[in-house]
Structures are given as C-alpha cells and as structure tokens.
Design a binder for these strands. Structure first.
Lengths: 231, 231
DNA sequence: CAATTGACTATACGCGCGTATAGTTTCATA
DNA sequence: TATGAAACTATACGCGCGTATAGTCAATTG
C-alpha cells in the first residue's frame, strides 16, 4: 500500500507524452520512433513534446529516469516483504515490468539503464546470501559475479520474449505462458546441468590450460573484430 | 565455370561491404547506421552498396543470412566433435560469435534472426537429451521448453555484456573475463538455487492457485499495457 | 578490335525527420 | 477585469537520409 500513482485517468499531458514515448521507443526503437508519432499517441501537438522535454534525447532520458524510479520502488517494496523467494521475485518483476519490457530490452542492450541493472544485481546478491548459507562447498567465484550473471541470464528471457514464446509455443506474457514459464524456471533452477564433481574437474582443466582456443575461434575472424566503442 | 568471384577469400568489395555493415549495424543499430558510413568503412562508394544489395533492407538480410550460415556451420562442426559438453559449447560459441555479438544482440532483441535462435535451441535439446538420461525425477516441462529457456538465458550474458562486464569488474571478452565467466557458469550450472523438494512444493502451489497476482501487478499499469504488435 | 557486361562512381532528388519560432489559449492571482 | 506566465498549437526551415539515374572503367568474349 504505497499509493504511488495518483490516478491513471487524468494524467497530465507531460505524463501522457512520457507513456507514449515508452510505448513508441519500445515498439519501434529510439531512432525509428518519431516525435510526431509520440505526440499523436499522446493526443498533443509535436511542439508540446519539445516544450516539456527539450529534445528527443531529453525525452528518452526522462523515460529512463522514470523506469529507474519505478524499478527502485518495486524493489524496495519487495525487499520489505519477506514472503518472496528469489524465484517468485523473478516472476513478480516479470509481471511488473511487462508493459515496459520492450523499452527495457532495447535500453539495456544498448548499454543504457545501467543503474537499473545494478539495482537488480544488488537484489540478487541479497537472495544469494540466504542461499549460500545453506550451501556446503565454497563457491567458485564471488557472490557479486554470480549475482551479475544470474541477473543477466534471468533478463535473457524477457529480452528474447518473441523467440522464447515461439519456442515454447505460447505467449510467455499470457497467463498460460507465465505458468509454463514458472514451471520451467523451477525445473531449471532446481536441477543442475552438471554435477559439482564434473564442474570441479572442468575448473581444474580450465586453470591448467588457460589457452583453450576452439576450432571456430580461428575460423571466424572478420574485418574488424577488436573494435567496440560505445555510442 | 561461372566464376564471378575470383577468390572465395573475403576480399571482394561485396564481402567488405557486408563486414562493414555487420560492424555498423552492431555498433549503431540498423536505423542509425547509414549506407554512406558503411560504404566509407568498406572503402567504396555508397552507390555500390545499392548495386550489390539493392537496398538497406537487402543489406541487412544479407547480414542475417551470412550469420545464420556461420552459426550453422559452427554447430555442424561442433556436433561431430563429441568432446564438447554443453558448457564448453556455450563458451566456444561465445568466442566464435564475439565479433558479431553486437549485431546479433540487436537482431535478436528486435525479433529477427529467428532461425538462428531456433538453431541454438535444437543444439541445446540434443544436449539435454544426454543430461536427462542421468536424471531421476521426470522434468516439470518438456525438453524443448527447457532448451528454449536455457538458450535465452545463456544468450542473456552476451546480450548484456556491457552490464555484465561492469558487474564482474572485467571485460568478459578479455581472456581473464572469459575465464572468470566460465568459472561462474560452472558454479551456477552445478549448484541449484532451490532444492527439488522446494520446487515441487512451489509447483503445487502454482497449480492450486493459478491466479497469483503480485502487489506490483496492480500498481504498475501504465497507458497501454496490452498492446504489443510486432514491427 | 569492337562490343557486351558487370563492377563501380558522381550527382541529384525527394521525403521525413528533429528542431526552431511565432502565435494562441488557459488560468491563477491581484 | 488586467496581466503575465505557462501550456499548447501551427508552421516552416534545414539537414541527412535512402534511393534513383546516368555515366565511367575494366575485364571478358567472339
């Protein structure tokens, strides 16, 4: 009961523009989305967009800020509610973020929304703390590394939701899809792909032979492999 | 002899354009990338791009086809080599696809490159077949569903490589980063987050109360939650 | 040696975009 | 009612883009 949004009904024009931008950016991407289209969806003139947000980039930043605030609030809320396990958190955040999912996906892949990702990692770390307490062997790597990887992997599902839905034969955002997804996640998270012994063995091999070039590594080398500067 | 291409070596202008496009599309996104910029990187005139690929969209499709062909060849190669486990495959494909990773990420998130994703799922399914043989309890869901989810989760890491690198404190494409990543993956894949008993219990709860609305589900409902038409 | 064909360039057109600016309405306050 | 600011609209400009077209050059072929 954190009474957040005053009323979805009489939203101010500024908020309507922001929501329309979230939608358009998510559906068409930042470049392809047009101020005119966003203004049209929001029911205002294109000029008003500029009046409120200064520029297209400003509008984007406002969208990012809004989402970060929303995720942060969601996390705080869940954090105080101890009934959630890691699994149900994943499911809950999947549901909560659903409307913004496409926007989120694009932003994250483009390297933006960093604080949002980090927020999720911190969340994962907290749960890992509990899980690690019940664990016998010491982990191979630090908790933060595992939390980071776990977060990225969990995000892979909504990020690729079109492909996942196609592969599962059901829209993962529909009730049935969500149910199937939850079952599958429970199965995956409760059944290791390899045994700890095998893993330890492979780690040993890894430490002894750090130079493990695959046959493909030699073959797949195109024009400019080493350049990735950010936008 | 129809030898239009004097050499299969990737030195023809057409190949250079394709490589430049892979790079530009990956770095700037499809919309933002310009034919002029691609032509410049390839060292040709913008007109030649059109001459060879017809249009910008045609160029994109050529890039997709090329990548699919490359992944397929990689898979075939690995498939015949039985020394690979699921884990090392993930690592190997991570290395092989590295130069195309940014392009891949954008394409996949935009819903394109579907056959590529499906190819990977098929690969995962084959390995799951072996793993399932050693498993006592029956899986909660079909193998394909688990393979699909596993693929999406594995892809989440390179998709979010900037965030993952930041969280791990090391570039995951550097040798050290790759090593740390492999260790972490081995740990995650060998240590379940929850016990099978807990999972079974949660599934039970899931089946009995299919309507599990979270507090956030009620709160986070923006303008148009139910619309997601594809491009 | 023409003659044809394909690789490649130079140049320009038209359109849609972000942006700028001037003008109009709404509304709180005195 | 007067007034000033803020919300909002109408209109236009300029630029960069994809695309189209005409032309040049090099290699192949009879």
């Amino acid at each position: 009961m954190v009474a957040t949004q005053p009323d979805p009904e009489d939203l101010t024009a500024r908020a309507r523009i922001r929501d329309a931008a979230l939608q358009h950016f998510g559906e068409h991407g930042f470049e392809r989305a047009t101020i005119r289209g966003i203004a049209d969806t929001a029911g205002v003139s294109p000029g008003l967009v500029r009046h409120h947000f200064g520029s297209k980039q400003g509008l984007r930043e406002a969208c990012d800020d809004y989402l970060v605030k929303m995720v942060r609030r969601f996390n705080d809320q869940v954090r105080t509610d101890t009934q959630y396990s890691d699994l149900t958190y994943v499911a809950a955040s999947r549901a909560a973020l659903k409307p913004y999912q496409r926007y989120l996906a694009r932003a994250l892949v483009e390297g933006a929304a960093a604080s949002l990702f980090d927020e999720m990692v911190k969340m994962s770390e907290e749960w890992l703390t509990d899980i690690d307490a019940k664990r016998s062997e010491p982990p191979f790597v630090s908790r933060k590394v595992r939390a980071t990887l776990g977060t990225a992997m969990a995000l892979g599902v909504p990020l690729l939701y079109q492909h996942v839905s196609r592969g599962m034969g059901v829209d993962i955002f529909s009730p049935e899809g969500d149910r199937l997804l939850s079952r599958a996640m429970l199965d995956i998270y409760s059944h290791p792909l390899i045994s700890p012994e095998e893993a330890a063995m492979l780690i040993d091999a890894l430490d002894k032979a750090p130079d493990r070039a695959t046959p493909a590594e030699r073959e797949a080398t195109p024009g400019r492999p080493e350049e990735h500067h950010d936008d």
